[in-house]
Every structure is written in structure tokens, then in C-alpha cells.
Design a protein around this nucleic acid. Sequence first.
DNA 1: AAGCAGCACTGATCCGTATTAGTAAAGAGG
DNA 2: CCTCTTTACTAATACGGATCAGTGCTGCTT
Lengths: 341, 341
Amino acid sequence: MRVRQADIARRAGVSQATVSMVINGRGDAAGIPAETQRRVLEASRSLGYVPNPVARNLRGKRTNLLGVHSFEAVFPLDRRDYYYEFLLGIEEEAESAGYDLVLFTSAGGEPDRRRRIYRDGVKRLTIADGSILLGVHSDRDELLRLVKDGYPFVHIGRRDIPGATIPFVTTDYARAVEQVVDNLLRLGHRRILYAGSEVPIEPQHDRRKGFRAALAAHKVRTGRLVQLPPDAVTADWLKRLINDGYTAVLLEGLPHARQALTAAAGVAIPDDLSVVVLDSPPSGTNEFAAWSTLRIPRTEMGRAAVRLLLSRLDQPTKAPVQLVLPSSAPAPHTIATPART
Amino acid sequence: MRVRQADIARRAGVSQATVSMVINGRGDAAGIPAETQRRVLEASRSLGYVPNPVARNLRGKRTNLLGVHSFEAVFPLDRRDYYYEFLLGIEEEAESAGYDLVLFTSAGGEPDRRRRIYRDGVKRLTIADGSILLGVHSDRDELLRLVKDGYPFVHIGRRDIPGATIPFVTTDYARAVEQVVDNLLRLGHRRILYAGSEVPIEPQHDRRKGFRAALAAHKVRTGRLVQLPPDAVTADWLKRLINDGYTAVLLEGLPHARQALTAAAGVAIPDDLSVVVLDSPPSGTNEFAAWSTLRIPRTEMGRAAVRLLLSRLDQPTKAPVQLVLPSSAPAPHTIATPART
DNA sequence: AAGCAGCACTGATCCGTATTAGTAAAGAGG
DNA sequence: CCTCTTTACTAATACGGATCAGTGCTGCTT
């Protein structure tokens, strides 16, 4: 059977209340003499006492568990580029804060493989003191309901929902892309193509906003945005771009960029065409080492999310609610002055 | 304020006990008439009741949490090749079994970055119904103590500790390597070099056992095993091997294999030298796509570990304790008949 | 010697739910 | 009319720990 405070109390010849206070470091404040405290701690150790976080939490105290809810499975390989670094940061920061992580995998099992927070109205998240939420397609209704319920969480990635302030950590995609485009324009590029994916969500909207903003600021009307499937990015397609007078192309996501990587063999990059990938290269590889890519500080976002969550737990009113981290500009590998034509 | 069963009870004009039973579908069994049940459910719905899982667990029911304890951080990039697929399998299986995962990150914070289970005698694992343990360098004393404590767990990877039966899931490294070497010998290879790492643990011991077993079975004495650091694997080193008459080399781990991948440029593979990597290629890449590698069923091991753990929870006495999964033979990419000399 | 402060604790209660033992009322059977 | 069942519930309790309002005792004043 599990060791409870009552067992320690019996062994140390004191009451359960005393044990609770000593163990929680409230012994001095309660005026328990050092000798008694020693006896209690000694008994606790020798019996191998482990506090029951569940009981603790019932009385409104912390469980020292931080939840991680993604709205889909995080480990499948096609999700790895996206989730991995977030998890890395979350793990690092949780470790140093002394929290364990609960991955809410049980919420799955829906036919569509989506993970729900409120399933049959049950919110498992409450085991944890608070949760980090992430996912490409977060469920807005659930976020809204969480806020209404007053459940402490932080979302990774900006989410704007009318009628509520969603706590989040993000990076400023719009500004990052704006700077890239601004830079290209200053170099003399005029015809710039933005190759976007077909199902955009917030981060993509932000990138596109940045694209348009930079063009507008320079009063350039020859930039163009297309939405296309990744496999449309072929060597032919690149050549056609150049023939059409484009001197720079922005690849919104890694799938498009990967296609371009092989398609680029027959094209002079960056002499005939500057290329910028608007996403981070996958961690732990050198897949896009030779290309100009954005650097989304995913690891840092993960860490920041944990820190923000913890500070919101400590000071629910005073802590900031939303946080925007800067993302650094791409290296100039595949950015060049446009060729004179 | 949160809605409790007591609130529903008041609204429906029944007792909290009745509410509990109706809500948990025990109403019919307890002989609560349909009409009353209707009233209770109606009240529950209209008040927006959400059960408190914490209180529920306090009553000694399962927490539906499965622990995952690695003896070090799992997400750092240099650990990814090792941990990722295990986690993938664990997540999949936990999801379909309706369990959440607790990553015990709080056990860190030691100066050596190792994670301890028993720290100050406290075993946080008990939050979970049971745990999966994994790690290259598991702490044997802690495993032993866990067994003695009767804590339900399954280790990923074989661990033999005198005086205890450690529950584990593994794959048969010895047999896999034995088959590889047997195959090479049948092809006519006689001088085979096994390039091993310098700090071997169980899986490496098993591989080496397989190596020796195959040689012994063929009565071949010209196989050799060396231990060396990965960066000793250079183009020169490979050439020297060939000069020394070796026709095949086995690379024990990925670090050595990676070195070989670049060093192999100046060598005719597999014509002058057959090469087999005795580990799985990293998932989600095609890094070793052209080479013969073992296929360690890591994802399946993760799944099997969860299944084994759950069956041990359900039938502590009847369920099996240890499980060995087969690993499949390497493709023949870099295995050839030795050149006549 | 009464009064009072401080010490070292303990008893009782609460948190929200599940479960068990029990009970009041209605109806059945003799 | 009395007893026995059945129906339809409810009261009480347990789970493990945190907290607060005491309580008995000692020692010091005045």
C-alpha cells in the first residue's frame, strides 16, 4: 500500500497535520521544533513517502504537472518538422522548473484523428496545473471555452478570437517576411513571386500580409502571390518564372521548398533567381543549409510558453498574456542582386 | 465557480449520490427510474457540469496516466535518432488505449543531467498507473529497486540484472547480426571487420555475440572486432582495411556509419568493400537509403511496451514479463560478393 | 495566585466524487 | 393487520493532504 502522511505521523508520534506542515516547509512558521521536524522527515524518508499530487490538487494546490495538448498526434513523422523543436523547448524549461509534462494523448480516438479537449464535456486538462496548447489547426471553440472556464493555458502560435484574449507565444511572421521582401526590393527586385500553400492559416496569413505590406510600402505592383500544390514546383516551373521576368521567389513552406531543392538543379541560383524559404529548416539536418531561410525560434517559443504559463499561474493578474518573439533574418545564401535584363 | 454534482442534486431535487450514479450510467443498476434520471441529466446539461477528474482519481480509480521515464532528456537533437520512434510507438498505443502520458522531466536538474527515479527517496512515478522506462544508460540500481517495490513498469531494451526479472521489450540484436554475418560468409567473405563503439552496453554486447556466433558456426577465425571512436573512420582507414585484405565491414552505430558515409567517397562500395550498418537509419530521412542497414523495429517496440505494460496492469500474474520482437534483415544495397584477389 | 503569553501541537473540516450501507414508503402475500 | 419485498432513494464515509481554530502545558508577570 502507498505510504500516506498518516503513516509517517504514526511512526514519528505526531499528528497528520504536523506531518503536512513539516513536509511543506511550514514547520518553522508553525513553531514545530527542529528535533520534531527531524523525526518527521526521517520517518518520511525511511518509509519512502511520495505526496499524492491528486489529493494535493483537490485542495486547490499544485500538482506540478504541466499539460501539453496538441490537437493531433505530435510524433508522426510528417509532423516532426513542426512539433519537434517546440517540444524540445518545452521539455527544457519544464525540467528546469521542476514540472513534469502530461501529453494529452487520450483525447484522440475520434474518427478524424483530431484531439478534443472537451469531449463529452470532460476536460482532462484539469489534472495539470496549466497547459501548453499547440497545433496547426487548433479548435477555436475549445480555446474560447477554456478561456471562459478560466483554465490557465498558453497557446503556441497566435490565435485571435473575437470576444476573448487568447494567451499565446508567437513570432512575428509578418514582420519577418516584410523585411525579407523589403530587402529584395532594395536590391532592385521588382517581379517577386510568393508561392503559397493552398490551405493557409494564421501564420501564413501573417506572412502574406508582410509580403503585401512591403510591396505597398515600395509602391511596387509587380509582386504576385500564387497558391499551388507543392508538386507544381518543378524545374520547368522555375524556368518559366525566369522567362516571365521574375527575379525572386518566396517559398512559403517546407513542402514547396523541398520540391524546389531538387528542381533547382537546372537553374542558376541565385544569379538568375533569388530564393527565400519562409520557414525554418528542419532541426538536426543540413537540408537547407545552402539556402536562405527564415529562422523561426521554435525552441525558444516552447521555452517562453512554459515560462509565460508559469508566471501566469503565479500572478494571474499581473503577468503578460501574449508574447511575440523576434525571428531573425535569413542568411544571404540565395539572395542576390537581380541580373540586368 | 465550477459546477459540482451537489449543484445538480439541488436543482434536480435529489442527493449527490444519485447524481453520481446517474451520471456514471449506474442509474439503472441502482434502480433509479427513467424520469428521475432524465431530470438529473437535464440539470447537469443546463448547468454545464464538468466532472473533476482529480476528485475521481482520489477515490482510488486509475489515473489513466502512463509514465515515460527516460534517464536523460529525450528531445535534444543528438538523442533524436534514438528516442523518436520509441515515442512515436508509445504515443500511438497510449492514444488508442485512452491513456495520457506523463513525461517525467522533473527528475532532472542533477548536475550530471541524469534523471533519477528515486531522488531523496521520492518516486514521482506513482502518479502514473505504470511507466515505460527507456534510456541508453539506465540506472540498474533504480530498476532493481522498482522491481522490489512492485511498481509496474516495462523497460524498452533488454536489461539483465542478477536477482531480479526486469520486464522489457527488445529486439533480437544477436540474431539479426548473426544472420548478417552468416550471409556475408556464405557469399565468400572471410576477413570481416566489426567496428564497434567504445562504451558498449547490452544491445552492443548482443550484436557482438551474434558476430562471434556466426564466425564460430562457420569456423572462420579471420573476423576481427575493434573498438574505436567514430572519427577514426576516415577514407584512409577504409583504404587500409582493403589493403589489409578485409572485404566487409560492420558499423555498429550511426556515428560510425555517418563518418563512413563521407569517407566512402574514395572507395568502391560494395565492389571492394561490403558495408552493413548495424543500426536503423534515422526515421524520416533518406540518409542511409543506399546502404544496407539493420531495421530495428523501434516504433513497434514502443507500442509493444505499452501493450505489455497495460496487460501487466490488468493481469499482474498472468501477463508475460519479457518480449522479444524480430528485426528484419538488411536490404542488399551494399552487400556484394567479395572481389577475387 | 491569578492572569497571560507563547509553545507545540492536534482535532476537525474541506476539497469533489464513488460507493456502500441503510431507510422510508409502497405494495405484495399470508 | 402484520411481515416481507421491492423501489427509490439518501446519509455517511473514504480517498490524501492542507489549513485553521483550538488546546493543554509551561513559564513569566504583577
